[in-house]
Write a protein that binds this DNA or RNA. Structure first.
Lengths: 257, 257
DNA sequence: CCAAAAGTGTTACCGTTACACCCATGT
DNA sequence: ACATGGGTGTAACGGTAACACTTTTGG
């Protein structure tokens, strides 16, 4: 929400003299069962604009950056404000600073993206002005937010292919099949269960528990736990380059809006 | 409640009311022959601070974001301003927004990183207040700029392992051995010439010319040309996820300063 | 006993790595 | 001729993909 104190009837020269406004927005992903198939799919919460510009359209949660907050804190806070949830993973996506992103004023948005555990996501608040939508096939959003979501999705998919982040969409304990479902949902392709299992077991940070998931129709699968630094929420630390995390910035940063 | 000496006579509440300042900085890489070995190594230009804070220390080139510029334009401009050069590659690195990056004022810096062709880099301007330094083993810099450079280096190295960016450090035409030298210089390890050659030839976007580099002591190597979208300088385009560019955001974003 | 998911074993495939070898040129 | 980097051939290695197979549960 690039809401900015409308600068009343500011004349042009005055507007030019002012620095660009700075806002934080967040793309929040969570898994929810699809209405049709019941299988998990990606959803995200949006906020309805209650004033111009783009009044009535849906937009990413966000707000101005206040003096006392770091960028990360600001992102976490507006995640909390809109959904009532705490992120399981939170990372900077990109800074969007095109000249005409907002018709009324020059705004630079620093956008974060977050993953929320599915167990918590069920309790997420909804209201008249906050609703969840399927991440694919979104309607037209305010500002350049369609592009931003598209880019966030690309990042999520890209990262899921090599990084240990799928767990952040699940609860504390999970079966390997559930992890596989996450991959299939996010990457939108089927994955061989046998090979997938082996790859996961090689991956450090994923530990078997003594528990098994009961209540299924078949052989009860073992539950696992993710023991990677749980603070993936906050300080992704000081530039050690981990083995698995190939990473690198977006091969393609998004259009320079 | 730390006392901040600067900011003239601004009282605290006034400072809190102001939005954080927004600045653009750029980490500019170019290859220059090492003084000792003569082999190419990574260098970058820094600017000496002529006022507080950190007066006398070296810092990344940068400045405030003006109303009329996109983020990318601003980065390109201050690259031009400090070195007199045009970037061959330019990409957003990260937005740094920690609370105490600058002692006097809250500043959010959106940092870009750039590659400059070695042919041009030779003509780069130097002066009392602008000098080039070897990218590794830098002295203490102003602000959090040591961290930023460290992160930019990590990104460069990471990207070089899978992306077609080495060419941006060379001239228009180059031998495969020169490309290999770039890899060796940046990644700091030796690369098998035979295998490297084959990998490059598979890579799309690199085309042989009819010319050969004369004047060497041995068999003249063929010259090649990079025909990838040359606008890698500017619009890295609309989110097509290319095959080679695995990419994904920094596995680890830098410390949230 | 049967269906279906959990979990294991095995093999083919493919890209990378290591390194032996030939080619072309200046001295 | 010979030293040296340019350039090609080839075989071992390692990770992934495909898929047959065994195990364990509920019905």
């Amino acid at each position: 929400m690039e809401r900015v104190p409308l600068v009343a009837a500011a004349n042009v020269s005055e507007r030019l003299a002012q620095p660009p406004a700075l806002a934080i927005s967040t793309v929040i992903f969570a898994l929810r069962p699809s209405v049709s198939s019941g299988r998990p799919t990606l959803w995200l919460p949006l906020v309805k604009r209650i004033r111009e510009p783009f009044k009535g359209l849906w937009a990413l949660p966000g707000g101005p950056l206040t003096q006392a907050e770091s960028l990360l804190d600001a992102a976490a806070r507006n995640l909390q404000d809109t959904t009532g949830l705490a992120p399981s993973y939170l990372e900077q996506l990109y800074a969007f600073g095109g000249l005409h992103r907002s018709p009324s004023q020059r705004v630079v948005s620093i956008v974060y993206w977050a993953l929320v555990q599915s167990t918590e996501a069920e309790q997420a608040e909804e209201s008249e002005n906050v609703q969840w939508f399927r991440a694919d096939g979104l309607q037209e959003l305010a500002f350049d937010h369609n592009e931003i979501v598209k880019y966030a999705l690309w990042r999520l998919r890209n990262k899921m292919e090599y990084g240990p982040i799928a767990y952040h969409l699940l609860g504390e304990k999970f079966t390997l099949a559930q992890v596989r479902e996450v991959y299939e949902a996010v990457l939108n392709r089927s994955v061989d269960p046998a090979n997938f299992r082996r790859q996961l077991k090689q991956t450090a940070g994923i530990e078997p528990t003594d528990e098994f998931l009961q209540g299924g129709k078949h052989r009860p699968p073992r539950l696992y736990r993710y023991s990677g630094t749980n603070n993936h929420l906050v300080k992704t630390h000081l530039l050690e380059q981990p083995l698995l995390e190939r990473a690198g910035p977006p091969g393609h940063p998004p259009p320079t809006l």
